[in-house]
Design a protein around this nucleic acid. Structure first.
Lengths: 195, 195
DNA sequence: TTTTATTGATTGATCAGTCAATCAAAAATA
DNA sequence: TATTTTTGATTGACTGATCAATCAATAAAA
């Protein structure tokens, strides 16, 4: 079996396995053994490629945020007007795979981890900033700059809040309802500025 | 030294110590030793009174949510009109001790834990429902019932979202600004219904 | 004397991380 | 082409540390 060029294959498998195991487990206190098993390799190999558990977890955050970013870029390209681009950003935040319970559980675990791991925090901050700046950039075409910043803050908070509340499964809300609430927030506040 | 009636004293000390240690550590992966040390007793005593680490953590959530509830009740009593009561609920959510970094870190850890521990989840769901129903009850006096539910969802999401984003410390926002954003959300949406 | 409070010492389990050894492909050499 | 050497991939077995949980013992009140 040992062929050359396995490294990228194994790294991807391990990063995907980590996300799945963390999501199922609902916590970062998962063992390297579980992750390796899920990826179909030995724990020793996971250490071989990532050096440490912490490094594997950090890579997992990085890779998955990168994928999320790619989704946003694609969605933004497809949208024409600023208003459509705002909707695109919202839609991606709530898209199916992001809204799956295991995915929410995993992100929640990473958010908590950001309190301990400076590197994890850095990646999440980059995501938060990008979300904010995507919103601001397009809002500026629709309202004064000062209002754009404020409305973007509110919209970002609402997106994250709907997300975390979905994780609690107290009053499960559909993807469409979440999108509608956020859209409504934007529309109402933009209208308030005109009227 | 052993005097009778130590139990409630020790329980409170341990629950407070747990919250502090978890907040400082930014995670639930804290040891019974650390908690016990912070409380000034031996690890064995913590086990004696709580049976297990999990039970101590659950008690910690319960007690702290109970305190939060008491704050809300007091604030609601002090407020007269429905609109003032809405403001009171918002104010408590962002009050100083709740907004301290260690407190946010602790709650984030518990939110993540809710994915694993059914009992922890139950307590957080109760809090979420109470927040929602406090908002709905007072909104109903100011707008149609259907709109009240929707606006309450949005306001609750915004509160939780501002909270979690504060935990990231990416663009630290002041207590006042957080309150202002949430108040603005309510005002704007209530006005939109009238206009 | 019984009960409550308290701890030091210990145990058993879990895990991250290491290491030496194996195996097969690729590259170099004859 | 055949043979040897090197290198990358992979793992089983092991180690050391950590930690929750237990327990027997002590000490002071009731």
């Amino acid at each position: 079996m040992p062929k050359v060029g396995m490294e990228p294959v194994r790294r991807k498998a391990l990063v995907d396995a980590a996300m799945r195991v963390i999501g199922d487990h609902g916590s970062l206190t998962v063992t390297m053994s579980e992750i390796a098993k899920q990826a179909g390799v030995s724990p020793a190999l996971a250490h071989h490629y990532f050096g440490s558990k912490e490094q594997l977890l950090i890579e997992t955050v990085r890779v998955h945020l990168q994928r999320l970013r790619d989704s946003v870029v694609t969605a933004l390209r497809a949208a024409k007007t600023p208003r459509e681009k705002l909707s695109a950003v919202i839609r991606v935040s709530f898209q199916a795979d992001q809204f799956a319970p295991e995915t929410i559980a995993a992100w929640l675990a990473f958010y908590a981890e950001a309190q301990r791991s400076e590197e994890t925090r850095r990646f999440l901050v980059i995501y938060a900033r990008r979300l904010h700046s995507n919103l601001v950039a397009n809002l500026k075409a629709l309202c004064p700059a000062g209002d754009a910043g404020r409305i973007a803050e509110g919209a970002a908070a609402m997106i994250d809040g709907l997300y975390i509340r979905q994780g609690l499964r107290s009053a499960p809300i559909s993807t469409e309802a979440s999108i509608a609430l956020t859209e409504d927030y934007l529309t109402t506040h933009l209208n308030a500025l005109r009227g």
